[in-house]
Design a protein around this nucleic acid. Structure first.
Length: 737
RNA sequence: GCACCCUUAGCUCAAUGGUAGAGCGUACGGUUCACAUCCGUAAGGUCGCAGGUCCAAUUCCUGCAGGGUGCACCA
């Protein structure tokens, strides 16, 4: 053995050794019980970041530990097609050559993404191998595999036939850049400086009114351009200031004019009372734009107000906004409106205002709420099921504080908008027959049965004509397919063995996007929750406590760490910092400590192996309990080993990985190396205690390597290869008792 | 606005109802015989602030401040 440990000469070689052994696949383990963990499928667009590294390390510690405990341990890997993210990534690539996806057309563009996926999609899995993840790669899945796709469609059909999926026109969140609808969870809010405009809407004069009616009512808004779509002004029914005005009408000072200027007549809209209005905000009077605001849409439903869509999917003003505005961008329209209103002296005042603006979680473009025909999954019943499951502890969310995130979302649940207008993804199994058959003479009655739309796995046939059905162009929300990850595409045999999985390990950022949806999907389709526990691990932040971000250049690339310090040191550094489920403020010196520790293990092993007696290692190490006449130092180290094993075992069960690692570290370095090895040097020099001491050294080393292996797999396996027994050739399957 | 979490050595973090510890860094010293990626010694903390409970509080309680997260609002 060399004087220093060199990860570069070791890691690839050892990983190949493991792969060749086939033990990542539990079929080879001949274990009675399984222990499965799903790898949260990274996006095909992803490249390894600290979050992946932490996640994979935790999963791998558990898998390696359970494998050594004799269970049929498996990590089920794969990748996610990442609808919007992948589409955006490839669009960006094409843009470099000045090509848009529309230039290519749908078929060719989707083909380009597939090619891109073949080329780059597997890279992240290779990176996970680099940090040592012992996943069963023979079972690698992809969320757009043919079988997976089929099951996604079957799921849609199941929900549809159960009446849980419906199609409807609703105000939804629309990303004008991605050109698609988004669900509530795909929106991020960002604080922004803006203004609150106080606009005066003149009241319609009523002759002979017994009340004193003011000239105008003032409404506060952050989006003056939406006034073109206003359908009412609303106040709280309790608001004393406006009692006289409820039921009166105001004149929209700028109205969407069409046609000739002579026909110009401003729209008159009512003043209504609605409980949703907060009388403390602004003037207590609010303009209601049903088509472009969620709350306004709700209020409009209650009051049967018309929806005027004045903004389109490209964030431009529509024809309905009137000839003066049609085609203008939202921001240009805003300027024009403000200018016009101030000309008319209808702006009472303007206030500085900070508020949260909704943005697309994939491209950061400003979201436009607008009415659109979409497909929805009815959530109340599913949400109830999911809530009950965690309330009854059938699925345990750990740490418990994250239960709140889960319950909060379920409590305020909205129907899930599952259709997306992008090209990359699972096309809806919905087929259109348009136009309907033209009934031949005398058969009108029969043909009435001809359907315009059919939900079906394969293309349906019309009973009355030869016209082909056309499949819906829309695709499903990526998370609709991710929700099926615990079971889709698994063979019946695998399903029996690996469902439910033991524990789900993931980040808090996707508790509801992913975890919650997996839970209700599992309950719905297999009548059992997909995992017994969901462990929400910490998030890796910068040293300053800020989010790591590639675009801001604040990210740390784990591959660089592996290159500089080795995979074991990187794993050590990550886990060393993972204490009590607080977020990690990244400190690279922990990786340095890991590198030093690798070397310490290496050199202590060199010492022990230089003093290894002849014979099979397994036999030598097992004889520990039979050794007589132990010295106090012998007894002490044996006792310390037992205590360490116990403590580490308990820590791992409770996901206290950082604590476990520090316990082993302290034992190995300070109790074993600093004290016992030093003492052993004397014991080795006398012939009566020599063999005993040699056996103890070998035994403690072997047990230490086993404990360390889940945390630092490469260096421990490499050392083990230098003295492995005929009976137990690999450390990965050595018994961890 | 509501809820939860965090605040301990220069940095990143532990532990603990009764003399506060680690890693990294710093200073000084040592080491042919496993390891200079090593060993030893030292410096360095009124444990965020203000109250309270207790014989005793960094540890328990309350309030405040700063940082973070989730939810609601975001007209």
């Amino acid at each position: 053995m060399d004087k220093a440990y060199d990860p570069k000469q070791t890691e690839e070689k050892i990983y190949r050794l493991w792969s060749k052994s086939g033990y990542f696949n539990p079929d080879k383990l001949k274990a009675r019980n399984s222990y499965a963990i799903l790898l949260p499928p990274p996006n095909i667009t992803g490249s390894l970041h600290m979050g992946h590294a932490l996640n994979a390390t935790i999963i791998d510690i558990l898998i390696r530990c359970k494998r050594m405990q004799g269970l049929g341990a498996i990590c089920l890997p794969g990748t996610d097609h990442a609808g919007i993210a992948a589409q955006n990534a490839v669009e960006k690539e094409l843009k470099k050559n000045g090509v848009s996806r529309f230039d290519l057309g749908r078929e060719k563009f989707v083909q380009a993404i597939w090619e891109w996926k073949e080329k780059y999609g597997h890279i992240i899995l290779g990176q996970l191998q680099k940090i040592g993840l012992s996943a069963d790669w023979s079972r690698t899945r992809f969320t757009m595999d043919q079988k997976y796709s089929e099951e996604v469609k079957k799921t849609f059909i199941h929900y549809y036939e159960k009446g849980l999926i419906y199609r409807g026109e609703r105000v939804i969140s629309w990303c004008p850049r991605c050109q698609t609808s988004l669900s509530d969870l795909e929106i991020e809010y960002q604080e922004e400086k803006s203004y609150l405009w106080y606009l005066k809407y003149p009241l319609v004069k009523i002759p002979n009114s017994k009340f004193q009616i003011p000239n105008s009512i003032t409404v506060a808004t952050t989006r003056p351009e939406t006034m073109l779509g206003d359908a009412a002004v609303a106040v709280n029914p309790q608001d004393k200031r406006y009692q006289n005005l409820i039921g009166q009408k105001v004149i929209l000072p700028i109205s969407p004019y069409g046609g000739s200027p002579e026909g110009r007549k401003n729209r008159e809209i009512p003043i209504i009372a609605d409980r949703a209005i907060d009388s403390g905000f602004g003037t207590g009077a609010v303009k209601i734009t049903p088509a472009h605001d969620f709350l306004d849409a709700e209020i409009a439903e209650r009051h049967h107000l018309p929806f005027y869509q004045v903004i389109n999917g490209k964030a431009q003003m529509t024809k309905e906004a009137g000839l003066d505005f049609e085609g203008l961008s939202v921001s240009a329209a805003r300027e024009k409106i403000v200018e016009e209103l101030s000309k008319q002296n209808l702006i009472e005042k303007t206030e500085d205002y900070r508020h949260n603006v909704a943005r697309c979680y994939r491209c950061q473009a400003k979201i436009e709420p607008l009415p659109s025909q979409q497909w929805f999954l009815r959530m109340p019943a599913l949400a109830k099921m999911a809530e009950k499951d965690v309330r009854s502890q059938k699925t345990e969310i750990f740490p418990k504080k994250f239960e709140k995130t889960y319950f909060d979302w379920l409590k305020n649940i909205k129907d899930w908008c599952i259709s997306r207008q992008i090209w990359w993804g699972h096309q809806l199994p919905v087929w259109f027959h348009e136009p309907k058959c033209v009934p031949p003479q005398g058969r009108e009655k029969d043909i009435v049965k001809c359907v315009e739309m059919k939900v079906s796995l394969t293309e349906p046939k019309c009973e009355y004509c030869d016209a082909k059905f056309k499949q819906s162009e829309e695709v499903l929300d990526t998370w609709f397919s991710s929700a099926l990850w615990p079971f889709a595409e698994l063979s019946k045999k695998d399903l029996k063995k690996f469902y439910p999985s033991a524990v789900l390990v993931t980040d808090r950022g996707i508790i509801n996007l992913w975890v919650t949806r997996m839970i209700f999907s599992g309950l719905e389709f297999l009548n059992q929750e997909p995992f017994a526990k969901a462990f929400i691990h910490p998030t890796v932040l910068t040293k300053e406590g800020k989010r790591m971000s590639k675009s801001l250049g604040t990210g740390v690339d784990p591959l660089n760490l592996i290159e500089a310090f080795g995979a074991d040191a990187t794993r050590f550094g990550i886990i060393w910092q993972m204490m009590s489920n607080q977020d990690i403020r990244w400190d690279e010196t922990a990786v340095l400590a890991g590198k030093k520790f690798c070397n310490k293990i290496w050199n202590a092993s060199r010492f022990v192996l230089a003093n290894k007696p002849a014979g099979d290692s397994a036999d030598l190490a097992r004889g520990l309990t039979r050794i007589k006449k132990l010295t106090p130092a012998d007894k002490k180290i044996i006792k310390q080993l037992e205590a360490t094993k116990k403590s580490v075992g308990e820590d791992i069960e409770k996901f206290r990985f950082g604590h476990a690692l520090r316990t082993i570290y302290d034992f190995f370095w300070h109790q074993f190396c600093d004290v016992y090895i030093e003492k052993s040097k004397k014991q080795l020099s006398t012939s009566e205690s020599k063999l005993k001491t040699q056996k103890i050294l070998l035994s403690i080393l072997t047990e230490s390597l086993k404990m360390l292996h889940p945390f630092m797999p490469f260096v421990t396996e490499e050392i083990y290869q230098n003295f492995s027994s005929k009976k137990q050739k690999l450390l990965i399957t050595a018994k961890w008792n």
